[in-house]
């Protein structure tokens, strides 16, 4: 995607990063993907948050993910009026199920939309879209 290599012209929406979530985004800049695990009840969670929603404990462990997973579901988006996206249609939006068992929203890239199917094995790709923001996307596993 040529326009994404040109950082100054990145037109898609950027995340409004909460301070609470900053460690996760900083890890993404290091090209590392994390989920969280509650040290008290053991429950896993994504997106990251300060408290375990199952027991409200603040005692949190960051667990680094392999970046491998499979497509849980997806859609080939042919229409989106939002700046940036309207110039990169069609694109694939997906919920990816990580090997660690949690689902996260992302894009499936580096393949034709017609190749995408549910259960397709995928691997994380870290896209440095601006000097401050790296997005975690996925591509078909090698």
């Amino acid at each position: 995607m040529p326009e994404e290599k040109d950082k100054k012209r990145y037109a898609k929406p950027l995340p409004h990063i909460d301070e609470e979530m900053r460690p996760w985004w900083e890890a993404a800049q290091r090209h590392e993907l994390y989920i969280q695990k509650c040290r008290d009840c053991g429950d896993l969670r994504f997106h990251p948050r300060a408290l375990c929603p199952s027991c409200l404990s603040s005692n949190t462990e960051w667990v680094r993910c392999s970046g491998r997973g499979k497509i849980y579901t997806f859609t080939v988006t042919n229409q989106n009026a939002t700046a940036g996206f309207r110039d990169s249609l069609p694109y694939v939006l997906a919920w990816v199920e990580l090997e660690e068992g949690l689902k996260l929203m992302s894009n499936i890239i580096d393949c034709q939309p017609s190749q995408v199917r549910i259960d397709l094995p995928v691997e994380a790709v870290f896209e440095d879209v601006t000097p401050d923001v790296t997005l975690v996307k996925f591509r078909p596993a090698a």
Partner: peptide, 18 residues
């Protein structure tokens, strides 16, 4: 969709993907 900033913490993990 995917435009602007939603105020909820979850939005930052979704809106960048359209």
């Amino acid at each position: 969709g995917g435009a602007g900033g939603g105020g909820d913490p979850c939005h930052q993990f979704e809106f960048p993907y359209g």
